[in-house]
Write a protein that binds this DNA or RNA. Structure first.
Lengths: 146, 146
DNA sequence: TATTGTTATACTCTATAACTATA
DNA sequence: TATAGTTATAGAGTATAACAATA
């Protein structure tokens, strides 16, 4: 039987995980807003854009499934990001009910800038971990998300 | 010079951290809502209640500072949780501008129930990690939040 | 003058339900 | 009849600004 230090309860781990990431999230957003990143590039929007960028071109229903959000929510992201000229809607010629989305031409440099600011913020937020510990953390997280 | 596997960039780690915990958060909330926990005990509200419970009795301005939220937001939490009979407001006799809050008598059993459900959900969410890995993760998170 | 908490208001993210156009 | 996306609406969590009561 192991001690509680080597075998903490799931509840304790998850509680710490959610609490800690909430703190990091707040720190991260406050660093970001101090930098030159446009405010409308919030966390969820950036996550959305990254998904679109990875796919190149993707149907709205697909990205909803991929991100675990509802079609209605996709419509709102697309509306907001289209207004900011970051993505464009394209009709699907094979299915006239469906709509593809992809990054606009102005999006990549902005996202690049956002990534830089994110990485700068991340350096501050993760300052208390050594490079090796960051590697460990990354592996554990990747295992969790599979 | 280490490889990128042992020394990932901060940006990559934080990106994975935020993305992964977003997924976990969604999974966790969906497990929770499938259980018998009252819906009004959402993550942020539970976090708020736990803070109040730890303090025993705390001023609204203090809890705002502790949780990193604005006084206006505290007022909303208190309004909602007071309506659910989970906390009570008490005047501060020494400063008539200030208000103390503390748990009501009915709160602790409900919170206990919520913790149990949370731990059940957590088991599912963390199923892909061994007990040792959970221990590692916990240590890394604790280090991060210091 | 400064601080505590509140009212008024608004924005983002998320959801459900009802609908339109198409398949 | 089923699917893709939209309109309409709502609710939680967060914020800023203006204000009243008190210090």
């Amino acid at each position: 039987m192991a001690t509680s230090e080597t075998m903490p309860s799931s509840g304790q781990v998850l509680e710490t995980l959610l609490r800690t990431t909430h703190q990091l999230h707040l720190q991260f957003e406050s660093h970001l807003s101090a930098l030159q990143v446009p405010e409308y590039l919030s966390g969820p929007r950036l996550r959305f854009l990254v998904s679109v960028a990875e796919a190149g071109q993707i149907r709205m229903s697909e990205i909803a499934a991929k991100l675990g959000i509802k079609p209605r929510t996709v419509t709102q992201f697309v509306d907001a990001l289209e207004q900011e000229k970051l993505i464009v809607r394209l009709p699907d010629p094979d299915d006239r009910r469906a709509t593809f989305i992809r990054l606009s031409e102005t999006a990549p440099p902005l996202m690049q800038q956002a990534r830089l600011a994110m990485s700068e913020s991340a350096d501050k937020v993760l300052a208390s971990l050594s490079p090796e510990e960051r590697g460990q953390l990354l592996l554990l997280l990747q295992q969790l998300s599979e």
